[in-house]
């Protein structure tokens, strides 16, 4: 399906371009916007994998929740001052050398072991769809870890409220 291929490359490009822009923009709000672009690209990739629940949750949670909070914090700090400060990028040549070395390793390993990879075939759309499947797995197979994670989150919420308030 060339449509799928086209959209895969489109979303991959959006994700990567967003990621690169996030680290290269000097203005923090522009960086946050690029990160949003990248997250939306990932959401698109989820949709191509027929994981429509993950697609929606990715946008609701990351773009709508976390990134809006990011933007809040960025808008409330003094941006001009932060932009004028010296950037810690004096050793970019060392960083570049490390990145190239790791990239060379990955390319080498991938080219040697390419025969060992097996690509999973997308399964035909299952009964009821993605939402029901995720719910089944989450509430039957992994019920205890799921509930434990929710307790952990609750503890974090209560802790942050106690730390933020001077007097309870």
């Amino acid at each position: 399906m060339w449509v799928d291929t086209f959209f895969f490359y489109l979303f991959a490009l959006v994700t990567l371009a967003g990621g690169v822009l996030t680290v290269t923009r000097r203005n923090a709000v522009h960086s946050a916007m690029s990160l949003i672009l990248s997250l939306i690209g990932v959401a698109g990739l989820f949709l191509l994998q027929r994981a429509e629940f993950l697609f929606a949750v990715q946008i609701v949670l990351y773009v709508g929740g976390i990134m809006v909070l990011f933007l809040f914090v960025i808008m409330l700090v003094n941006l001009d001052q932060a932009a004028r400060m010296r950037q810690f990028s004096g050793q970019w040549w060392l960083a570049l050398a490390c990145v190239l070395a790791v990239a060379a390793q990955i390319v080498y390993v991938l080219s040697r072991g390419s025969g060992a990879f097996r690509f999973a075939r997308p399964e035909p759309p299952a009964r009821g769809g993605n939402v029901e499947l995720v719910a089944d797995v989450l509430f039957k197979q992994y019920l205890l870890p799921f509930e434990l994670a929710s307790v952990l989150l609750l503890a974090a919420i209560v802790g942050s409220v106690i730390m933020a308030r001077k007097r309870i």
Binding site: I36, I59, V63, G64, M67, V68
Partner: peptide, 8 residues
């Protein structure tokens, strides 16, 4: 999701 992005 759309109303969440609309906040932006």
């Amino acid at each position: 999701a759309m109303s969440a992005v609309g906040v932006l």
